[in-house]
Amino acid sequence: MDSKKIEELLNKYWNCETSLEEEQQLKEYFKSGEIPEQLKDTAALFQYFDVSKKKSLNDIGFDNSILNSVAPKKGKIVKLVYNSMRIAAGIAVLVAAVWFVRQELRKSDPPSATVEDTYDDPKLAFEETKKALMMISKSFGKAEEQARKLNMFNEAQEGINKTPEKK
């Protein structure tokens, strides 16, 4: 670019009449390095603009920290699902363990009470029942005997009570 054009552009620049494209042309020109002595200071200003634009946010984790804080909802749901899955898995293991243990116990130790109480042979069952009933009946008989003794006393007392009335 010839120096006259640059002069012209710079004048426009100082008067704030340049467009963005023209300002870009100036920046490019001052970047090139072949700058006349009288424009060295102006060049420094444009170089300053250029260098300033290179300043950047020096943090590798920045994007991720933003993206993390930007998506808390999704994260929460995932966490919730994850946690409930863990709890469900724990419960499943517990239920399976209980079931197996019960199964094992049943196999090794057949439930005794029901087998002992039940007779496969009805005749035997009848005999057993009869035995039991006989035992009850025997006890009743014994009790009746004692009650008869009581009755004797009772009658005797009644007899005593009656005699004075006869007199």
């Binding site: 300033s52 634009k53 300043k55 950047s56 946010l57 920045f62 933003i66 993206l67 804080s69």
Partner: peptide, 29 residues
Amino acid sequence: LPAKNKLFRFALKFLGNEEEAKDVVQEVF
């Protein structure tokens, strides 16, 4: 997100402190 450097430089112009500027950019996003 790619605008972060522009925002950072702008915030830095006000605050003059990189950490503060970074905080501001974070809040902006």
